[in-house]
Lab assay of single mutants.
Amino acid sequence: KAVLCADHGEKLQLFCQEDGKVICWLCERSQEHRGHHTFLVE
Rank of each mutant, 00 (worst) to 15 (best):
H36Y: 00
V41R: 14
S30N: 08
E10H: 03
L14T: 09
C24Q: 01
D7W: 07
Q13S: 13
H8M: 01
R29T: 08
V3H: 04
H8F: 00
L14S: 12
K21R: 13
L14A: 07
Q13M: 05
S30C: 09
L26S: 10
E18M: 14
D7T: 15
W25A: 14
K11I: 10
E10G: 07
C16H: 04
K11M: 11
V41E: 12
L26I: 07
G35K: 06
F15S: 06
V41I: 06
W25H: 14
E28Y: 04
Q31E: 08
Q17Y: 03
L12C: 13
L40E: 12
E28I: 03
H33T: 01
V3F: 15
Q13E: 14
G20H: 06
Q13N: 15
E18H: 05
G20Q: 10
H8L: 00
K21W: 03
V41M: 08
C27N: 02
S30F: 02
D7C: 13
Q31C: 09
L12R: 12
R29L: 07
E18W: 02
G35I: 04
Q31M: 10
K21S: 09
L4T: 10
K1T: 06
L40N: 14
R34T: 13
E28L: 05
E10S: 04
V3L: 03
E28W: 04
S30V: 03
H36M: 02
F39G: 13
H37R: 12
L26Q: 15
F39M: 12
D19I: 00
E28T: 13
E28C: 02
L14V: 08
K1C: 01
G35E: 09
E28H: 03
H33M: 02
L26R: 13
E18V: 06
L14W: 15
Q17S: 04
Q13T: 14
V22L: 14
V22A: 10
K1M: 08
E28M: 04
K1G: 07
A6S: 13
Q17T: 09
C24K: 02
D7N: 09
R34V: 12
L26Y: 11
L4I: 13
Q13R: 08
K11R: 10
C5R: 00
W25P: 11
C5Q: 00
Q31G: 09
H8A: 01
V41Q: 15
L12M: 15
L12W: 09
C16A: 05
E28N: 05
V41N: 12
H36A: 03
H37C: 07
F15G: 09
I23T: 02
Q31A: 08
L26W: 07
L26M: 15
H33W: 01
W25S: 13
G9D: 09
D19R: 02
H33R: 04
L26G: 10
H37F: 14
K21G: 06
V22T: 06
Q17V: 04
R29M: 08
R29Y: 06
L40D: 13
C16T: 01
K11L: 06
E42A: 00
L40K: 08
L40Q: 15
L12N: 15
H33P: 01
A6Y: 07
A6R: 11
K21Q: 04
D19H: 05
H33V: 02
R34A: 12
V22R: 13
V41G: 09
G9R: 10
K21D: 05
E10L: 06
S30K: 04
G20R: 09
Q17E: 13
H37A: 13
L40W: 09
Q13D: 09
S30R: 07
C5L: 00
F39P: 02
F15K: 12
A6L: 06
C16V: 03
L40T: 12
A2G: 15
E42Y: 03
R34S: 11
F15A: 06
K21A: 09
L12Q: 11
A6Q: 09
K1W: 01
H8C: 02
V41S: 10
V3I: 08
L40P: 14
C27G: 01
C16Q: 06
C5Y: 02
H8N: 00
Q13G: 10
H36K: 02
A2S: 12
Q13P: 06
H36G: 03
L26A: 11
C16L: 01
L12I: 06
A2R: 13
W25M: 14
H37S: 08
E18A: 03
V22W: 02
H8V: 00
S30D: 12
E28R: 09
Q17M: 02
V3R: 05
A6I: 04
L26E: 13
C16P: 03
G20V: 03
F39C: 03
Q31H: 08
C16E: 07
D7M: 13
K1Q: 04
G9N: 15
F15W: 09
A2V: 13
Q31L: 04
L14N: 08
V22E: 08
C27R: 02
K1D: 15
I23S: 02
W25C: 12
R34W: 05
